[in-house]
Design a protein around this nucleic acid. Structure first.
Lengths: 340, 340
DNA sequence: AAAATATGCTTAAACGTTTAAGGATGCAAG
DNA sequence: CTTGCATCCTTAAACGTTTAAGCATATTTT
């Protein structure tokens, strides 16, 4: 049961493959195809259940109608949701999506980029890993369209979609301040990635603006690769000091989840002993005995924007880059307690 | 900056493209290429940073080295994890993965199958939606290699990877029985899908074997599409009856999460008032104030098996189908309480 | 010395499309 | 009755590979 090709249709209709191609790609007008024969060709195509061979089409056109997506880890619901909206949106535009997970590792990410480019993707949507600047510059040198999502590098002039991480973090901390928390800690990843830096900056500026001493730092970091140990250490440091923290702001959902696991283990009561606030939502935070207040990133908007910007870049190479910054919303639950 | 092709290398080396192809695909032996010239060709290829065009290769070979993956919803961590292992494993075998989410909807799933086939995937890994039997039969008729994962249809003879859902459910219920629970309810999806049926069967047989009256049923169902409302109703029915349930077995993680949200809302205390057990793990269950006992599906094993079986089927079309059934493990936490 | 075989390379077709260029026919205008 | 111009269709090349077949030349076998 071989696949039906243009040639099969052409033979059946007694015409050349060219004519069939013109008709089936709706170029009858330009190619001045007769109405009768066009109808006949369509008829036969339908009858034989013709499905175009995208591979052949791609080879000829130099375009694959495929997008490459590189996320840190597709099994993390944050990225899963991004992937979901990107795939949906791509499909709406007749694109398919190939994906890979970089594990926040620049080398892996580089491998993935190469694999995807060999598959002739028309463009890439990337959550870049720390230290992947060089790769991106190479992409630029090769004129490969790409869009960064979730983070970017300030000194690389490329299109990107992010949320306003600075404002988001500030909102979070100010919420804690309004709730009367005195010693507000933050736990972030140990990384120079811009989105995390911005969240740190938002945290620090919020404290300063409201006259909190930025003296002895309550900003702790954990390594992505040693999350568990570093997290326990960070929390221990925050809670065992003489000036024990009475609130913790987690920079991402994965940090919050790991942190709360340990906080549970230590039997610390939220929100009485400790207020909690985090970036990103996830079921786990809903289900926590004290539902966690969080900064929401509008993932569907981000995903749609990423696809839109990428396709624009593919179709209008000289359009110039685009920086999209979307606002976050603070979703108040119970983990920061009442005013006191 | 055009891409480097075989022809460019051939020109640079002063030979034909055929020779270059032979060398770069390591067919020097069969093609009896001279050592000198082979070395030279390799040298030039490296210098020009040649990257083969997979599209062209695919067109010629009729193989795309691409797998299509259809899951219910990539943003669900269960499927995200499946996708993750499948992608990793595929990459190890020089395959890439295109994916799509069916939302448990047969029509969407059918669309996806068509899209992926048009992209000339070499095979498919599918979590089939309810009512998609016809699609699968069509795939069989077209001789498209595919492997089902997570579920299958007993009356369709196709390769599949599942866990032993029957035993898993039985283990879960027997655990509840050992803990002395008397009125054990179950909440599952309203579906005829086999994995869910098997879990229901495990539940029922466990009860029967241990002499529980299967009289008035404590097995409730919820629609995937109306999860929230149906879940609340189910739980209300289980808990408001005169013979109030003292344990609930959830058939999947999404059911457990939705269920626990409502249980929290109603302020029911786990495990004292109600024991909880579920299929599948997720962060949310870890983080619950009373960590939830669950039946673990070995996702990495499943993913790897799926890729292995699919590639076998692609490479040895007459190998015959394979049914892989993997054991689950019961992971005991605290949500079923102590013996009483 | 002729025939057979080995060696090292090229030619050319093929995969399924797309599309510029061209050819054949009919018809109106000169 | 030519010329010009639509109209409708075909030819053929191209995209970047792979690979069977062929063609010299050199070497071995008989």
């Amino acid at each position: 049961m071989k696949k039906v090709s243009l040639k099969d249709i052409a033979t059946a209709a007694g015409v050349s493959t060219a004519l069939v191609s013109y008709v089936l790609t709706n170029k009858e007008k330009e190619a001045r195809v007769g109405e009768e024969i066009a109808k006949k060709i369509r008829e036969i195509a339908r009858k034989l259940n013709y499905q175009p061979n995208y591979i052949a089409r791609s080879l000829k056109s130099g375009r694959s109608f495929t997008i490459g997506l590189i996320v840190a880890d597709i099994s993390n619901p944050f990225f899963g949701n991004i992937a979901r909206t990107i795939e949906d949106e791509a499909k709406r535009n007749n694109y398919t999506v190939i994906f890979g997970s970089s594990d926040e590792n620049a080398a892996k990410s580089g491998d993935l980029v190469n694999v995807l480019l060999n598959r002739q993707v028309d463009g890439l949507i990337i959550t870049p890993a720390e230290g992947s600047e060089q790769q991106l510059r190479q992409l630029q040198a090769q004129n490969i369209p790409f869009v960064l999502i979730d983070r970017f590098f300030p000194d690389i002039t490329a299109s990107h979609i992010t949320v306003d991480n600075y404002q988001g973090a500030k909102k979070a901390v100010e919420h804690l301040i309004r709730k009367g928390r005195q010693r507000i800690g933050m736990i972030a990843y140990k990384t120079t990635l811009h989105h995390i830096s911005e969240r740190k900056r938002g945290y620090q500026e919020a404290l300063q603006t409201h006259g909190y001493s930025a003296g002895r730092s309550l900003l702790k970091t954990a390594r992505y690769s040693h999350l568990k140990e570093d997290m326990q250490l960070a929390i221990d440091q925050l809670l065992n000091s003489r000036h024990r923290a009475d609130a913790i702001f987690f920079a991402t959902n994965s940090l919050a989840i790991e942190g709360l696991k340990y906080i549970n283990e230590r039997g610390i009561r939220i929100p009485d002993e400790l207020a909690i606030i985090t970036f990103d939502e996830t079921d786990a935070l809903d289900l926590f005995y004290c539902p966690v207040t969080f900064v929401r990133q509008p993932i569907p908007e981000m995903g749609k924007a990423a696809v839109r910007v990428l396709l624009e870049q593919i179709n209008q190479p000289h359009k110039g880059i685009e920086h999209i910054c979307i606002d976050t919303t603070l979703v108040v639950r119970k983990s920061c307690g009442k005013r006191r």
